[in-house]
Computed example of a mutant assay.
Amino acid sequence: MSDLPAAIRILVADDHPLMLAGLAAVAQDEGGMQVVAQAGNGEQAVALWRMHRPDVGVLDVRMPQLDGVDACARIRTEFPEARIVMLTTYRGDVQTRRALQAGASGYLLKSMVRTELLAAIRTVHGGRRYVPPEVAADLFSHQLDEPLTPREVDVLGQVAAGNSNRAVAEQLGLSEDSIKAYMKKIMGKLAARDRTHAVMIAIRRGILGD
């Protein structure tokens, strides 16, 4: 009988085939790890988790059909012991916070995959949380900020799409004065100089999708 510990069984999920293959290769090439499933979207990730019951999942935040954060939440609801590392291309405290609230144990930027993915997998497999210092710093710097309401996010999303106040008002069934008031409050919460700056901040922080 071997005294070696069992390999960490891993599920990887990303909607970009090259990234998915890269994630699988990084983990599979490491001794003591075994990739047991690969998913191209959030729905597949949930289905494959039910089928394979891996030790650790590595999920992209943004995927079609069901995004990674919602897939994480669904998996954690069914399997509370699940350990999941979320991956994203862009930094953003709001997106990070949403992932951690959904039950993620780790959070990495894709630029960190080569240098930190293996450590993240081992750390969360051991029952600890893995959040790199720069990601944690983003979280800490905005922890006291007043969040945008769902309606404010809707308004800003319409503005980000290039709509005028009048067009946004028509889209949302509000008055133009109401949209102006919303934008004033949004810019105050985000400490933005103008509409364009507010949109840029919202994308950077993960309030709006890129």
Results as ranks from 00 to 15, higher is better:
residue 11 L to T: 10
residue 37 A to S: 00
residue 53 R to P: 01
residue 34 Q to K: 09
residue 83 R to A: 15
residue 89 T to Y: 09
residue 118 L to F: 07
residue 53 R to Q: 12
residue 19 M to L: 15
residue 106 G to D: 03
residue 119 A to T: 14
residue 92 G to P: 10
residue 22 G to K: 08
residue 86 M to G: 00
residue 58 V to P: 01
residue 109 L to E: 02
residue 116 E to G: 04
residue 114 R to N: 11
residue 32 G to T: 01
residue 20 L to P: 03
residue 68 G to R: 06
residue 62 R to V: 13
residue 62 R to K: 14
residue 71 A to N: 04
residue 10 I to A: 08
residue 112 M to V: 00
residue 55 D to K: 01
residue 105 S to D: 14
residue 14 D to R: 05
residue 119 A to M: 11
residue 34 Q to P: 00
residue 13 A to N: 09
residue 14 D to Q: 07
residue 82 A to P: 03
residue 91 R to F: 10
residue 84 I to G: 10
residue 15 D to F: 11
residue 31 G to V: 13
residue 13 A to K: 01
residue 45 A to C: 07
residue 69 V to M: 06
residue 69 V to R: 02
residue 14 D to V: 09
residue 112 M to H: 06
residue 10 I to V: 14
residue 121 I to P: 00
residue 47 A to E: 13
residue 43 E to N: 08
residue 113 V to L: 10
residue 79 F to L: 07
residue 116 E to K: 14
residue 67 D to N: 15
residue 50 R to Y: 08
residue 61 V to T: 01
residue 24 A to H: 13
residue 92 G to Y: 10
residue 35 V to D: 01
residue 54 P to W: 05
residue 47 A to F: 06
residue 75 I to R: 09
residue 87 L to W: 12
residue 44 Q to F: 07
residue 104 A to C: 05
residue 12 V to C: 04
residue 94 V to W: 12
residue 104 A to Q: 05
residue 13 A to S: 06
residue 69 V to W: 05
residue 14 D to L: 07
residue 72 C to W: 10
residue 43 E to A: 11
residue 86 M to T: 06
residue 103 G to T: 10
residue 77 T to L: 12
residue 121 I to V: 09
residue 79 F to S: 08
residue 94 V to Q: 15
residue 53 R to H: 10
residue 22 G to I: 12
